[in-house]
């Protein structure tokens, strides 16, 4: 565990807290992509259910895995049950088939072993890389976003972004290199770059997130 990895994980926790805060205080899920949230639930289920076959690295990892699976299911519940009337499915129209299908193909091409757990892990890594796209698509379609929603997306982007210096550190300090995670992680971070540009030049200077 190094500082970049720790800050990345912390940022991931903060992003989920921001999302829950937005929904519970405004009692709405307006502007939030159910599809992105469903993809994250699938990402966590396919990656972290390795708990069931004994992949227990540390209490830290186990606690985080349980938290991410649990919170993602709770978020889906909030969107689908109490805040259902506030969701507008007509703007959440990104085609999930492409993302899930693409991740499936990538998991069959790029994995460390042709075994069910390894392919599942690789699938979760590739799917995570693109899971934010339906959310960014909503922001692009509506041309604006509530500040709290942009803080959520920014914290989520910072999470995988911070894993990159973590991998550099681990490569030089520990000789550790996980090419699949690194390549997918870089793709994931690149997907956020447009968003981050507007976030830094507008939202952090007190303006509303609006596309030009």
């Amino acid at each position: 565990m190094n500082i970049f990895r720790f800050l990345g994980d912390l940022s991931h926790l903060v992003s989920i807290w921001l999302l829950l805060h937005k929904m519970t205080t405004s009692k709405s899920c307006t502007g939030i992509s159910f599809k992105t949230q469903a993809l994250y639930a699938l990402v966590f289920a396919t990656r972290y259910l390795d708990l069931l076959y004994g992949s227990w690295h540390s209490m830290y990892n186990v606690a985080m895995k349980i938290f991410f699976i649990g919170s993602s299911l709770y978020i889906l519940y909030l969107i689908k049950v109490p805040f259902k009337p506030t969701r507008d499915p007509a703007i959440d129209t990104f085609k999930l088939e492409y993302l899930v299908g693409g991740a499936l193909i990538m998991s069959l091409i790029a994995n460390y072993e042709y075994s069910f757990p390894e392919i599942l892990w690789s699938f979760s890594i590739w799917l995570e890389a693109v899971a934010i796209l339906p959310q960014l698509f909503i922001i692009q379609r509506t041309g604006e976003a509530e500040n709290i929603t942009t803080h959520y997306v920014a914290a989520l982007g910072a999470y995988r972004g911070l894993y990159i210096p973590n991998w550099l550190y681990r490569y030089f300090a520990e000789g550790f290199f996980d090419p699949i995670a690194v390549i997918a992680g870089i793709i994931q971070t690149v997907i956020y770059l447009d968003f981050f540009y507007i976030y830094f030049t507008k939202v952090l200077k007190g303006q509303k997130f609006e596309l030009p």
């Binding site: 991931h12 390795d50 992949s55 892990w121 995670a181």
Partner: peptide
């Protein structure tokens, strides 16, 4: 010995 990276990352 396995060449697989240990999956301790989240």
């Amino acid at each position: 010995e396995s060449e697989k990276p240990a999956k301790d990352e989240l």
